[in-house]
Protein backbone atom coordinates (compact mmCIF):
# COMPACT_ATOMS: atom_id res chain seq x y z
CA UNK A 1 0.00 0.00 0.00
CA UNK A 2 1.62 3.22 -1.11
CA UNK A 3 1.01 6.72 -2.36
CA UNK A 4 3.09 8.95 -4.57
CA UNK A 5 4.18 12.27 -3.05
CA UNK A 6 6.08 14.63 -5.34
CA UNK A 7 6.93 11.69 -7.64
CA UNK A 8 8.40 9.63 -4.79
CA UNK A 9 6.75 6.51 -3.39
CA UNK A 10 5.63 6.74 0.24
CA UNK A 11 3.92 4.36 2.63
CA UNK A 12 0.12 4.71 2.70
CA UNK A 13 -1.33 5.20 6.17
CA UNK A 14 -5.12 4.67 6.27
CA UNK A 15 -7.13 7.63 7.63
CA UNK A 16 -4.09 9.91 7.53
CA UNK A 17 -5.16 13.53 6.96
CA UNK A 18 -3.32 15.99 4.75
CA UNK A 19 -2.15 17.89 7.84
CA UNK A 20 -0.70 14.66 9.24
CA UNK A 21 0.98 13.80 5.94
CA UNK A 22 2.62 17.23 5.82
CA UNK A 23 3.87 16.65 9.34
CA UNK A 24 5.18 13.20 8.45
CA UNK A 25 7.04 14.69 5.48
CA UNK A 26 8.36 17.47 7.78
CA UNK A 27 6.87 19.94 5.32
CA UNK A 28 6.41 22.96 7.57
CA UNK A 29 6.73 25.66 4.89
CA UNK A 30 3.44 27.60 4.89
CA UNK A 31 3.18 28.43 1.17
CA UNK A 32 2.31 25.05 -0.33
CA UNK A 33 -0.15 24.11 -3.03
CA UNK A 34 -1.54 20.61 -2.57
CA UNK A 35 -3.14 18.58 -5.34
CA UNK A 36 -4.58 15.08 -5.02
CA UNK A 37 -4.72 13.41 -8.43
CA UNK A 38 -4.57 16.88 -9.97
CA UNK A 39 -7.35 18.43 -7.86
CA UNK A 40 -6.33 21.40 -5.70
CA UNK A 41 -7.17 21.06 -2.00
CA UNK A 42 -7.78 24.39 -0.22
CA UNK A 43 -5.48 24.93 2.73
CA UNK A 44 -8.37 25.24 5.19
CA UNK A 45 -9.47 21.72 4.29
CA UNK A 46 -6.13 20.04 5.09
CA UNK A 47 -7.17 18.93 8.61
CA UNK A 48 -10.23 17.04 7.29
CA UNK A 49 -8.85 15.78 3.98
CA UNK A 50 -8.02 12.07 3.79
CA UNK A 51 -7.13 10.13 0.65
CA UNK A 52 -7.24 6.56 -0.62
CA UNK A 53 -4.38 4.18 -1.28
CA UNK A 54 -2.51 4.71 -4.56
CA UNK A 55 -3.21 8.43 -5.08
CA UNK A 56 -0.76 10.84 -6.60
CA UNK A 57 -0.17 13.82 -4.32
CA UNK A 58 1.69 16.94 -5.33
CA UNK A 59 2.84 19.20 -2.50
CA UNK A 60 4.24 22.16 -4.37
CA UNK A 61 6.32 24.50 -2.25
CA UNK A 62 6.26 28.00 -3.63
CA UNK A 63 9.57 29.68 -3.88
CA UNK A 64 10.08 32.25 -1.12
CA UNK A 65 13.70 32.38 0.00
CA UNK A 66 15.99 35.30 -0.77
Amino acid sequence: MSIIVNTREMEYIPEETMTQLLKRMKYMFPLVVVKIDGVVIPRVEFPETTFPDGVNIEIIHLISGG
Binding site: N6, F29, I59, I60, I63, G65
Partner: peptide, 18 residues
Protein backbone atom coordinates in the same frame (compact mmCIF):
# COMPACT_ATOMS: atom_id res chain seq x y z
CA UNK B 1 23.87 35.21 -4.21
CA UNK B 2 20.33 33.88 -4.04
CA UNK B 3 18.75 36.96 -5.62
CA UNK B 4 18.99 35.52 -9.14
CA UNK B 5 17.26 32.23 -8.57
CA UNK B 6 16.09 30.31 -5.53
CA UNK B 7 15.12 26.93 -6.91
CA UNK B 8 15.72 24.51 -4.05
CA UNK B 9 12.07 23.78 -3.34
CA UNK B 10 11.13 23.48 -7.01
CA UNK B 11 14.00 21.11 -7.64
CA UNK B 12 14.70 19.16 -4.47
CA UNK B 13 11.35 19.11 -2.67
CA UNK B 14 8.69 19.44 -5.38
CA UNK B 15 10.70 17.49 -7.99
CA UNK B 16 9.11 19.78 -10.60
CA UNK B 17 12.14 20.29 -12.85
CA UNK B 18 13.66 16.83 -13.31
Amino acid sequence: QHDEAWLIFMDMVNNQIP
